[in-house]
Design a protein around this nucleic acid. Structure first.
Length: 435
RNA sequence: GUGGGUGUAGCUCAGUUGGUUAGAGCACCAGAUUGUGAUUCUGGGGGUCGCGGGUUCAAGUCCCGUUACCCACCCCA
């Protein structure tokens, strides 16, 4: 492995065909569910003007602060671009730009694709990763908050996760609730600030909410008796949360109401939730989401309520591997696509073009997985190749066959071989493949 | 950004207290008489031992630096 050889950029990886199968399985599961829930796919650019993200995610969020891949302006007076670190901001931008607020305010969308964050890679975290997310715009009904949670849970259920899936929910209130709460928090924290960890001291000004879930023990102890947001909630926020919980239960889910859940991005309002798979231990979060009623307005549209979630495939893949998913048979349909069905063998040099023509005709007739030798291998080596590839049938052409207008059809399982008249070959082959 | 671990062929790894041309398995390629896939056999390609410096008569093996990857923290999907 020469050190000057090119490598994929840090935090990225190549998905070779056999590995890609697993990802495609996740994608198809997501798409299948989206059809059931009647959410439509939207694709936005992989990069946006940087200010879209700083505006929507919050200047002080870590994502914006230090994790963006940013391309400087190329021309005088131009704008910097950034690769999208998440999907919600782009969706909201597209919603506004597409005229949805006035022409079709209610939308149920999903997106699926790569996101980029400039972070130190580690287990379950990459610089380029795939997210599946949904966004519902145009209704504040808490039934939607519950539906979105239901959707995410069904996704994991479909992948084979058991009933230990855990939904943790909380409400972050409305902006006014939070202004009141923030003031109370800072008031409460200011007394004990000197005794806290350096991170907490830093976060005190820009994001005091984060002191609540600090992992340091002494900080946790100092949080005894901290004022709760719940005490500051306006009536509408409380009612919304209760209705959300009631609907979740009606859908058969048992959420844990957990006031310690505080999501990192600024745009959340009211409902926030995470889905965990506790067997994974510390890193058990598979999905995060919530409501962001102020976001559309923030990016320049008419005030529009919205709710959604995002699932990271990297974490999902790891979680699946740890619990022995997916079951091998689940991937069979995908593996089938990589499988050689028919391998075409040429006996002599003068048979190469005719065998290429036969392969071409088979492909045109709709036969899948038709392959042949391109490296001038001997007949023996071609058969070996066919066997290794798992081909079910071999079509063999030599001078004798061509002279007589036959093609030799070999069943690789039974080793039976028959000379078939050229005109009957396709149906005979299809017949063999059907078995 | 901080801390820890690792770095020998495409892959998984051996390489004894520093000592002759650096090994194995798998994978790959070719051959074992004239047009056919098991197993087997034979042969072959492929590594400046991550990179740079130092110690030494001598370094894959010791020391320093550097880089890449992995893991943890921060934060998050």
């Amino acid at each position: 492995m020469a050190s000057d050889a090119y490598q994929s950029p840090r935090g990225t990886r190549d998905l070779f065909p056999e590995e890609l199968i697993r990802v495609r399985y996740l994608e198809e599961t997501a798409r299948k569910l989206a059809r059931a829930f009647h959410y439509h796919e939207i694709r936005t650019p992989l990069f946006e003007e940087t200010r879209l993200f700083t505006r929507s995610l919050g200047e002080t969020s870590d994502v914006v602060d230090k994790e963006m891949f940013t391309v400087p302006p190329r021309a005088e007076g131009g704008a910097p671009y950034s690769f999208r670190p998440e999907g919600t901001a782009s969706a909201a931008r597209a919603y506004v730009q597409g005229g949805c607020p006035t022409s079709a305010p209610f939308q149920k969308w999903f997106y699926l694709g790569p996101m980029f964050r400039y972070e130190r890679p580690q287990k379950g975290r990459e610089r380029q990763f795939t997210q599946f997310g949904v966004e519902v715009f145009g209704a504040q009904n808490p039934v939607l908050d519950a539906e979105v949670v239901d959707f995410a849970l069904r996704f994991f259920e479909n992948l084979g996760f058991g009933p230990e899936l855990e939904v943790r929910v909380n409400t972050m209130g409305d902006p006014n609730d939070r202004v009141r709460w923030k003031a109370q928090l800072q008031d409460f924290f200011s007394d004990s600030l000197a005794g806290r960890c350096s991170d907490c001291q830093e976060r005190f000004d820009r994001n005091p909410f984060r002191l609540l879930d600090c992992k340091v023990e002494k900080c946790q102890n100092l949080n005894e008796g901290v004022p709760s947001l719940r005490g500051q909630l306006a009536e509408e926020s409380t009612a919304h949360h209760e209705e959300f919980l009631a609907t979740l239960e009606a859908l058969g889910h048992k959420p844990q109401d957990d006031p310690s859940i505080v999501r990192g991005l600024d745009y959340y309002t009211r409902t926030v939730f995470e889905i965990h798979y506790p067997p994974l231990g510390a890193r058990s979060a598979l999905c995060g989401g919530g409501r962001y009623d102020g976001l559309v307005e923030e990016v320049g549209g008419a005030s529009t309520p919205a709710v959604g979630f995002a699932i990271g495939f990297t974490a999902t893949e790891i979680a699946m591997a740890e619990v022995g998913l997916p079951k091998p048979e689940t991937l069979e349909p995908f593996q089938q696509e990589l499988q050689t069905q028919v391998y075409c063998v040429a006996v002599g040099e003068e048979d190469r073009k005719p065998i290429a023509k036969l392969a071409s005709d088979l492909r045109a007739a709709g036969v899948m997985g038709v392959d042949l030798d391109y490296r001038n291998k001997s007949v023996k080596a071609q058969l070996k190749e066919a066997a290794k590839s798992g081909a079910l049938a071999v079509a063999l052409l030599g001078p004798d066959e061509r002279a007589a207008g036959y093609v030799c059809l070999r069943n690789m399982k039974t080793r039976e071989e028959n000379k078939i008249p050229e005109s009957d070959f396709l149906p005979e082959l299809l017949n063999l493949l059907k078995e």
